[in-house]
Structures are given as C-alpha cells and as structure tokens.
Amino acid sequence: MERNHLIVHGRVQGVGFRASAKQIADELDITGWAKNKSDGTVEIDAEGEGRQLKQFIDKINEGPTPFAKVQALDITEKEVTNSYDSFRTI
C-alpha cells in the first residue's frame, strides 16, 4: 500500500476533472479524495497498491477528460493511513 498527495496544475476546474478522477479511482481501487483549491489547482490524496496508484497518477497526468489540460503535477509521497474507505470529491 502506498499514499501520494498530488497538486494538479492546468485547466482542471470546471471540466469534470474531479468526477473523472473519482471514476478512475473507483476502477483501480484507489481511496482518498479530490478537491478544488482557490488557486485553480486540484488537490488529491490517494492511497492504493503501488501498481494501481501509478496507473491512477498516469491517467490523472494525461488529463482524465477531453477538456482537461494538465500542465504540471506535484507529487509527494506520504505515510499510509488506511483511513479512507472510498474515493470522494470534496
């Protein structure tokens, strides 16, 4: 199990980004959350098995919707908490 904290920069608000991130997370058994930040970025905290978490991050980086345009992705590894039972949007 691994946990990553992401800050997604680009055209990521108002384009269905968080809903698509949740759909991808649900498909890959990733738990955590995604929320819009006031600076226009999306913040994500995600936990999952290493391979699935990498796939999740790759799909986020590609832009999970046709309207999203990810310009940069800040990734920080965090200590696993096992405190999430699903992935939700805030």
Rank of each mutant, 00 (worst) to 15 (best):
A46D: 07
A34Q: 11
V12T: 09
I44T: 08
A21Y: 07
S20W: 10
G10S: 11
R11A: 01
K54H: 11
F67Y: 14
D58M: 04
D45E: 15
Q55V: 01
G10D: 12
E77K: 13
I75L: 06
K54V: 11
R88D: 14
T41I: 01
T76E: 15
P64L: 11
Q71K: 14
W33G: 08
A68F: 07
P64N: 10
V80G: 02
T41R: 05
K59F: 00
A72Y: 10
L6V: 02
S83H: 03
R88T: 14
L53C: 01
I30V: 04
S20F: 01
Q13P: 07
H9Q: 04
R18H: 12
E62A: 10
Q71W: 08
D39R: 01
H5V: 09
Q55M: 07
K37F: 06
I60S: 10
D74H: 03
Q55F: 01
G10P: 10
E62I: 00
S83Q: 15
E62R: 10
I60D: 09
K54E: 15
A34D: 12
T41Q: 03
N36H: 00
A68K: 07
V70G: 06
R51I: 11
K59L: 15
N61E: 13
H5I: 00
H5Q: 13
S20T: 04
G32Q: 00
K22C: 12
R88W: 07
T76S: 12
K22A: 14
R88M: 08
L73I: 14
R11E: 13
Q23N: 09
E77L: 07
K69N: 14
Q71H: 12
Q23M: 06
F87S: 04
E79Y: 05
V80R: 05
N4M: 04
E2Y: 04
T41K: 03
T31K: 11
I7D: 02
I90W: 07
E79T: 15
H9A: 00
A46H: 01
G16Q: 13
A19L: 13
T81C: 08
R51M: 06
A21S: 14
V8H: 09
A72H: 04
T89L: 02
N36P: 00
W33Y: 14
G16D: 13
D85P: 05
A25K: 06
D29L: 01
Q55H: 01
E79N: 15
E62H: 05
R88G: 10
E62P: 00
W33R: 13
T65W: 06
Y84A: 12
K54Y: 06
A72G: 02
A72R: 15
T76M: 12
K69D: 15
R3K: 14
